[in-house]
Amino acid sequence: MSWLVKTVNSSIGRKVLMALTGLFLCTFLIVHMIGNLQLFNGDGGYSFNKYAVFMTTNPLIKTVSYGLYAMILFHAFWGLYVTYINRKARSARYAITNSSSTWASRNMAVLGTVLLVYIAVHMGDFWFDYKFGHVPFTKYVEDVTSGQLISQEVMPAGYTQEVKLAAFANEAEGTQTVIIKDLYAEVSEAFENIFIVLFYILSMGALAFHLVHGFQSGFQTLGLNHPKYNGLIKNIGIAIFAIAIPLAFAAMPIYFFLK
């Protein structure tokens, strides 16, 4: 095992850890973004709330999510450590530098720190409240055959139940009543605040710049550089990770603020 410790602690090994965790976090973003698109469903949060229950109760997803939290923390703090080592390599700075590289590539640590703060705030806003705080419950009634939502009603303020989702079938009427922890209402309420909305939009800007360099840089670090695929990797990094995903995420607070 000593070869592994030695490799991981070499200049290249340290980069590889950044690349592997970074690319894993990129795959997480795809899942997170697609799942959250249900916020736009216009069904009073029914599908989004059911999805939130699934994501927080399914054992496999729960396991992966703990890995994800560890990975986020590792990527952030290992990145700061690597940045510290890299800065130490030049203690006397230049009086003038005429940069021949992109701004994003030179400021990954700054952008990453903004994102770490964002993730802390974001988890405090929703994850913490959902898990430990008081989130209201909402009762949805749906038609079982058509899947149409018939009615929805916020439960009284003091209402609580042991499970996040309780479903009662009413066979005579062909309907189903579902009482769910209403994360959608939390989201909706949080994004009424202009400062939270602006902070989220700004952070998604940081995400875009972080990923426009980070995605392709991860492949280069892993040695995956070939003229046949370089263009594809770069374009996926720009189109999907630096434009589509940050835009979709930024659209969520804007949607609720304007709603």
């Binding site: 200049s11 980069k15 390599a89 021949s100 590539s105 840089s217 280069q220």
Partner: peptide, 15 residues
């Protein structure tokens, strides 16, 4: 040896 000399690591800026 490169690491022992105290050079920093590449962050793929391309400069």
């Amino acid at each position: 040896q490169m690491d022992a000399e105290g050079f920093g690591a590449c962050t793929n800026t391309g400069a």
